[in-house]
Design a protein around this nucleic acid. Structure first.
Lengths: 220, 220
DNA sequence: TCATGTAACTTGACACTGTTCAGATTGAGC
DNA sequence: GCTCAATCTGAACAGTGTCAAGTTACATGA
């Protein structure tokens, strides 16, 4: 009886398509991650609660702790996957372009596009205090995403190590700051498609201003 | 008896130096704002709770609602003052310099210095979902701070309206993104003075790279 | 086939949180 | 001196994350 209620709840959640299990869920980690990503997509970073994630996965509030330790652990896992997805997007954006400047340009657009398309997840990825900040895998994933900029920028400034680092920091800072300010509506509404399109036009101007088309920028 | 306990609590809080009041606090708004800023300074944006602010001001958890409506209202007031302080800092930084490029450079440094000096308050200022995002005074204060960049950038690009806007967005985005990434420790530790100094050096390189000394950047 | 141990999950509790509301208290204006 | 609005308290409510202890399911080995 009780179990039926539990099963009913379970199938109403984010879900699995496998056979109805009994006491054991079977794929609880993945279900919780999926539930978390759904919450972040629907309600943003502030909307996430561990209990709601558990509810969607059809388990008790205490269940997640056995797999992720605590809420930070679950969010860390989600953030890691977010960084992986971001790195993929940056790589994909640059792959089609010829010049280093075009690659950087495309990367910048892809970065902000990612942030606008997954605002909740993006905000969470950079909410250090809600994650296990010193988790080795998280740090690696974050570094890998940042390194995508270094790779491209190295082409621009000629591969010199020190100036390249500063130039990569500049590129990352610019697009990250633009994305953050856009999400906080400093550049107008971001809730409708028209607003987002206008924001991307502004970003295009910003990138053209900082990395003009006429020849690559030299390091100082 | 009960009242003595209440008074003792009150004097242990963030405090007022006036005469011991009875039932009425007298300066509760200011006391709550001061308490909130103290919490943000000590514990960061995530550490704030309305109850803790009330505790420090020596009043019951329900008291703040009579002055600020809810927690968002109180935080909004704090954010407004934060934006005012930021605008002041940006203005002061630019005032001493000659060229437009030097002014912009100084503003950028001041922006990140502000963020590193008051991380909790800074993060809260840009946490739209924890504030009354459509509050008129908040929007005005935020816009005023952003306008400090436009004023300086207009000198650089020659005052042309449309390119100036993009250039101002570029400047704001860069320093804001740098500050955010620095606070999330993407550029190394920010907990000790040595780490912060190194970060400011990196910022200096970033600004020199994007706005080089040899002549003002032209609009596209 | 069956006992046993371990991993997965639930139950119930605890200390918090923000907010609401009725009622007590206060000070200012008439 | 009285009235009344502003101010604040106390108690309650629904919700949160986490923990210890109990329950269930499953694999392993005899």
């Amino acid at each position: 009886m009780k179990k039926q209620v539990s099963s009913a709840k379970r199938s109403a959640g984010v879900t699995r398509q496998g056979p109805e299990p009994g006491y054991h869920h079977g794929e609880l980690q993945e279900a919780l991650i999926a539930a978390t990503e759904a919450i972040l997509a629907e309600q943003g970073a502030e909307g996430f609660t561990l209990r709601e994630a558990a509810r969607r996965a059809g388990v008790s509030p205490a269940a997640p702790s056995h797999h992720f330790g605590n809420a930070q652990g679950l969010l860390t896992e989600v953030a890691i996957r977010g960084y992986d997805a971001l790195a993929d997007a940056l790589r994909a954006a640059a792959s089609g372009k010829r010049s280093g400047r075009d690659k950087l340009h495309a990367q910048g657009m892809a970065y902000v596009e990612f942030a606008l398309k997954h605002p909740g997840r993006f905000q969470m990825m950079f909410a250090n205090k809600r994650l296990v900040a010193d988790d080795a895998r998280l740090r690696r994933a974050s570094k890998a995403a940042g390194a995508e900029f270094e790779i491209i920028v190295a082409e621009l400034v000629g591969g010199a190590s020190k100036p390249a680092k500063a130039a990569a920091a500049a590129a990352w800072s610019t697009v990250h700051g633009f994305a953050k300010l856009a999400l906080e509506e400093k550049f107008g509404s971001v809730k409708n498609e028209a607003g987002r399109r206008e924001i991307m036009i502004t970003l295009n101007q910003v990138l053209n201003y900082l990395w003009p088309a006429d020849g690559p920028r030299q390091a100082v």
